[in-house]
């Protein structure tokens, strides 16, 4: 049995792989936390326009410490900067961009993704419930992708036949970038597109909660050291 802990991709590497699929000129929303790392690995020569729920298009990296203007933040309440061509708008316009199908890509984190594209990423069912924009973001973007470890800290599959945690959205995820593989969701199935070359299909299936279908060839998932 391969030791996955030794070979699995880091969060930075998962973010790098997700960034390779963002086309030049795409309008993109990155979920708070881990998905925000995708912006750091934008492919050279391509320009993505980032959207944040609280009403900014075309924001850039965080300002230097001490240079923050706290009226200029992202949905994660972190200070941001503006790029040339940025725009401000109110919350209803912001979510019109989301639900109205105007975003090209939304990239989110996940507790669980089911083989039919159901996503659970907002609630563990304990403590104070908080949803923010998660339930809106899974609807409307042309592609809804997830970046995640392939398994939980306990080793349980995060890609499952059916979600057992509270749902964020039904049938919404189109692609999952994990620490071991790239998997599309098509017609209610996980379709394996890429996997780490050190892992066999059987080993990957053993840590995946739904059946992995193979259509044609499975490419090697090759990511640089970061």
């Amino acid at each position: 049995m391969t030791d996955f802990a030794e070979i699995k991709l880091s969060n930075a590497q998962i973010a790098w792989r997700a960034a390779q699929d963002i086309e030049d000129g795409a309008y993109v929303n990155l979920g708070i936390g881990f998905p925000e790392m995708v912006a750091q690995y934008q492919v050279e020569g391509r320009e993505a326009i980032y959207h944040t729920e609280n009403g900014v298009l075309n924001f850039g990296a965080a300002p230097a410490e001490g240079e923050e203007d706290w009226d200029l933040i992202n949905a994660g309440k972190k200070a941001i900067t503006l790029k040339d061509g940025a725009a401000f708008f109110h919350h209803a316009d912001s979510f019109a961009m989301v639900r109205g199908g105007h975003l090209d890509v939304a990239i989110l984190g996940a507790f669980q993704v089911a083989q039919n594209g159901d996503l659970a990423n907002w609630s563990t069912g304990k403590g104070v419930p908080a949803v923010g924009g998660a339930m809106d973001l899974v609807h409307g973007a042309k592609r809804v992708a997830v970046v995640t470890d392939h398994v939980t800290k306990k080793g349980d599959p995060k890609l499952v036949a059916e979600c057992t945690m509270p749902l964020t959205g039904v049938g919404c995820v189109t692609r999952v970038y994990t620490s071991l593989a790239v998997i599309d969701i098509e017609d209610g199935h996980f379709v394996l597109r890429e996997k780490l070359p050190q892992i066999s299909l059987e080993e990957l299936q053993a840590v995946t909660g739904g059946e992995l279908k193979v259509q044609g060839t499975v490419a090697d998932l090759i990511v640089p050291e970061l």
Partner: peptide, 23 residues
């Protein structure tokens, strides 16, 4: 301030998705 009162049942919460709240 909110968490303590919510867990004690002293404040009612209606949780609304952010875009739905705006709309």
């Amino acid at each position: 301030a909110f968490t303590e009162r919510y867990l004690d049942g002293k404040i009612e919460l209606e949780l609304v998705p952010q875009g739905t709240l705006a709309e």
